[in-house]
Simulated assay, not measured.
Amino acid sequence: MAYYNNDQLLKYFEKNMQQVANKQIESLQLEIQKLYQKEMMKVTEDLHIKHTLEKNRLLKTLNVAHQEKINHLGIEYDETLMTLRQNMVAEIFETVTKQLLDYVQSDAYIPAMKHKLLQYSKTYDLNQLTVHIKGSDQNLGHFFQSEYPKLKVFTHPNITIGGFLLTIDDASVEFDHTYDALLKSQKEMFLETSKLFVRE
């Protein structure tokens, strides 16, 4: 067994202590490095999550604002389109009304009304029939009174174009042969089938 003096022992212990210290320092440095990397990853991940949440919040805000603009534009479009279509329908039926008023003044009007009335005179006695006509429709009124004296003829304030409203007295039945009713039903059918007021 070798013997060492104090200086040699001191140097030996110093060397061993230095080696142990170096190993511990190296181990601590590795541990610190790992902890640092772990914390940095956590901070980076937290920042990424925060950034993603903020980005999503901003995107949601932008989407809401964008959707509001789209809805507003859609409402403006619908209102403009509705106005244009209403004007178009009004023009169409104003033209048709004028054509019907011209027809009421034509030579074909009285024979057409006579034909309609004769359909009822085959089934009912003229004493049972009452017709209502437009107040200014003098030609039709004179024709009915001269051709069918038994027929009761009155004016009706709601008839503004032409034709007649026929009532069978005992049966309390009414037949509407006015051009006002015809125009109204055609307008309703036109609005239902034309799809003018539906936005695609």
Rank of each mutant, 00 (worst) to 15 (best):
E94N: 13
E45L: 11
N127E: 09
I159K: 04
E54V: 01
Q29L: 01
Q24S: 06
Y4W: 13
H177N: 07
N6V: 15
K60G: 07
M189C: 08
Q67V: 02
L30E: 06
E45A: 10
I49P: 09
I49V: 09
L59M: 06
M189Q: 11
S136C: 15
T178Q: 00
K55T: 03
F143N: 01
Q24F: 10
T52Q: 07
V20S: 09
F154N: 09
D180A: 02
Q67P: 02
P149T: 05
L166D: 03
V131N: 09
V173S: 01
N5L: 06
S194L: 00
D137L: 04
D107N: 12
L129K: 12
S27E: 14
E54K: 05
L35A: 05
M113A: 12
Q8C: 11
I75Y: 09
T95N: 08
V153T: 10
M82Y: 13
L30Y: 07
L191G: 04
F164T: 02
N87M: 06
D137M: 07
Y3V: 13
N16C: 13
Y179C: 01
K150S: 05
K122C: 04
L196R: 13
G135K: 11
K152W: 03
K150W: 03
V173E: 00
L53M: 12
H72A: 14
Y148I: 01
S194C: 03
E79T: 15
T95H: 12
H177M: 05
L62N: 09
K122R: 05
E26L: 10
H177K: 05
I133V: 14
E31A: 01
E192V: 09
L182H: 15
G74D: 12
L151H: 02
A108E: 15
I75H: 05
L101T: 08
Q86M: 06
M88W: 06
P111L: 13
E147I: 00
M1W: 13
E76I: 10
K60N: 06
V20Q: 12
M41P: 00
I168C: 00
M1L: 12
K55I: 03
I92S: 01
F13N: 15
H51L: 09
